[in-house]
């Protein structure tokens, strides 16, 4: 399961990077009737303005993927640094607010932030606000566990500075946790980025964007369902495969259960 989902995530990423070069038509130019059903030249038919759906599908992943990666990396970085510090110091910060963070869905802070920030910045900010505390929690637990290991004690007794011990001894030992956690943050960011794109709060490029395609083609569901189903399928596969890989990675990093 893990290998399959990783392979699928790899395929989606490869299509995203190479797709724009493979698109058979200009993804921004109308070449069919609006919402034309699939035909020989246009296997997935046309969209709301008669643009080729397959071309837009191939061109439309890059922005979402890059934005989600940036947001996930920011959240993981903040959470990992905080988790190292909290785990080393034995602090139990954030225990009181943890329920609230779990219960308040990420979309609400993202919408509130979108009042004063551009849509893309709101995605990054909300991913950090909602995700970094969760990363902090798991990294803190892993760090607290690594603290008393022999090599860490040895480094401390050698008189190395705390920062050096944390970065050179502890971080490599717990690195599997933030690496797997990055996947979960990516899924959150992708959900947020696609939600704000569907709500029209981000600037989608003229060449298309999988989430914006959902919004554009909803009203034509009866004329060309493929224009709606194809980007939905790609988004679902991407998020499912990354989440599955992240869960497997976390189980592996904490050594609990079988990495199915």
């Amino acid at each position: 399961m893990n290998r399959v989902s990783l392979a699928f995530a790899f395929v989606v990423v490869a299509v995203t990077l190479l797709g724009p070069a493979l698109a058979p038509y200009d993804p921004a130019a109308p070449v069919t009737a609006p919402w034309q059903a699939s035909s020989v030249g246009h296997p997935l038919g046309g969209d709301v303005l008669g643009r080729d759906v397959l071309s837009r599908l191939l061109a439309g992943g890059r922005r979402l993927l890059v934005l989600s990666l940036v947001a996930a990396a920011a959240a993981t970085l903040v959470g990992t640094l905080g988790g190292l510090a909290a785990g080393w110091g034995g602090s139990r910060v954030l225990a009181a607010g943890a329920d609230l963070l779990l219960a308040v869905p990420v979309l609400l802070p993202a919408l509130v932030l979108a009042v004063s920030l551009p849509g893309d910045a709101a995605v990054v900010a909300a991913t950090v606000v909602a995700g970094a505390p969760l990363t902090l929690g798991v990294v803190r637990d892993a760090t607290a566990g690594a603290r008393e290991r022999g090599y860490v004690r040895a480094a401390r007794l050698r008189g190395e500075r705390t920062l050096a011990v944390l970065l050179r001894e502890v971080l490599p030992a717990v690195a599997g946790v933030p690496a797997a956690d990055l996947g979960l943050r990516f899924v959150t960011a992708l959900q947020l980025a696609s939600a704000l794109a569907v709500l029209g709060l981000t600037d989608a490029p003229a060449t298309g964007d999988w989430a914006a395609m959902l919004r554009e083609n909803l009203a034509g569901a009866a004329l060309n369902p493929a224009a709606l189903a194809a980007p939905a399928l790609l988004l679902a596969m991407l998020s499912l495969s990354v989440a599955a890989a992240a869960h497997a990675g976390l189980r592996h990093a904490f050594g609990t259960g079988d990495a199915s």
Binding site: V187, L190, Q191, S194, A195, V198, A211, L214, L218, A221, P225, L228, A229, P231, A232, L233, L235, A236, S239, L240, V242, A243, A244
Partner: peptide
């Protein structure tokens, strides 16, 4: 739970 809600909306509508 990983599937974005917009995807659920689009799939059901399609």
């Amino acid at each position: 739970t990983a599937v974005p809600q917009v995807v659920v909306a689009a799939a059901l509508a399609a």
